[in-house]
Design a protein around this nucleic acid. Structure first.
Lengths: 201, 201
DNA sequence: CTGGGATCTTTACGCTGTCAAGTTGACAAT
DNA sequence: ATTGTCAACTTGACAGCGTAAAGATCCCAG
């Protein structure tokens, strides 16, 4: 269509290459030069578009949050019952963590992304909005006095924590001779515990 | 007492220097050479003791988990009521995240620490044990059918997520014109929600 | 007092991010 | 048609980094 200098859309190509690098070599061994190499451009090209490693990773984080909003919104729309909706959102969250590990690894790393970015904030707010809406519906139906924002933050924290700690949890149960648990099932059980609480009812 | 080559205990000195570097320049700009410089030794000395960046950071992660076990155990022992105990553990967890940010930033970063380390696994199991014991007591008193392991994992995930997301949460409420919330208070409210659930009782 | 192993230093190499300066292409005004 | 200008890269150079190999220094066992 509109080929610019050498590429159609170099920033997007660089984002893809970056994701590949992260998946293959890990975030610790990530390098801008390697990214440039894979995209077939000179080593300084990324800096021109993103300025910085932080710039490139922030761009990926924004992609991640945008996709997260889409995925959870879809999952939520498949159910009427708010509890089911919440459960579906949780599953969608951790499923995305499996399907796009690089994106999710970057999304909330405050040392790697530019938190003052406007686009990052709005994308995050959008994704969080899906959760808040669902919990508002849940509150309307099950508990008008529920502190909606706290509950939403707790859900988010729980799923985020699950994503980060799942590997550790697996190692732990493995050591104890237990059976490996699927992360989506765990997310479902977490949701049930969140809604019902630890006490008997 | 027993000064070896140049130091009394170089590995410990290196760990301290590493923590300082992380606090000052962030994990992203961490470098072994800088650590060596601060400890007053040659740039290759760290490698001799820890082999690798991963080795040094794993060592710090083990310190973190050990301290976490101590801190939460202390906090728990101050209360009799298991719900209060759980709440105190949560507060202790996030308080440690504030007091030892470098340690906590490293502790669960699967890309930076060696998960196959024996010491790391046992330290983690010890810290987790405190939580499990408390929740077992809670289950005995409030709900014999509670899935203790799930509940413990959920608590851990929630507090870990809170630690990671708290900065993001602040940015969010700030944008919405809300008041800044203390992380320990948030942890307390999270615990209450976890125990009571989202439904009315 | 004499080896030998542990602890650290020195030297050297390739890779990295960053900066300054140059090159190339597209397009608008003249 | 030429020129000017701007964006999109490339090229070259530099200091800092991790790592590995080889040398120096200390401690202690025999």
């Amino acid at each position: 269509m509109n080929p610019r200098y050498h590429h159609g859309d170099l920033p997007a190509a660089l984002r893809c290459a970056a994701v590949d690098v992260i998946v293959e070599k890990g975030l610790a061994n990530f390098s801008l030069r390697e990214v440039a190499r894979r995209a077939g451009v000179s080593h300084a090209a990324p800096a021109h578009h993103f300025g910085d490693t932080t710039g490139l990773l922030t761009s990926i984080a924004i992609e991640a949050l945008t996709k997260l909003a889409t995925v959870t919104r879809e999952a939520a729309s498949a159910h009427d019952d708010p509890v089911e909706r919440l459960s579906a959102i949780g599953r969608a969250y951790v499923r995305m963590g499996q399907e796009y590990p690089a994106h999710c690894e970057v999304a909330f790393r405050s040392d790697l992304v530019d938190h003052s970015s406007e686009a990052y904030a709005t994308a995050g707010a959008d994704a969080f909005g899906v959760l808040v809406e669902t919990i508002e519906a849940l509150a309307r139906e099950l508990n008008p006095q529920l502190a909606v924002l706290d509950a939403a933050n707790l859900c988010w924290s729980a799923m985020q924590g699950l994503l980060v700690l799942h590997e550790t949890m697996l190692h732990k149960t493995e050591r104890a001779g237990g059976e490996a648990t699927d992360i989506e099932e765990t997310a479902t059980r977490f949701t049930r515990l969140l809604v019902d609480g630890f006490r008997t009812r």
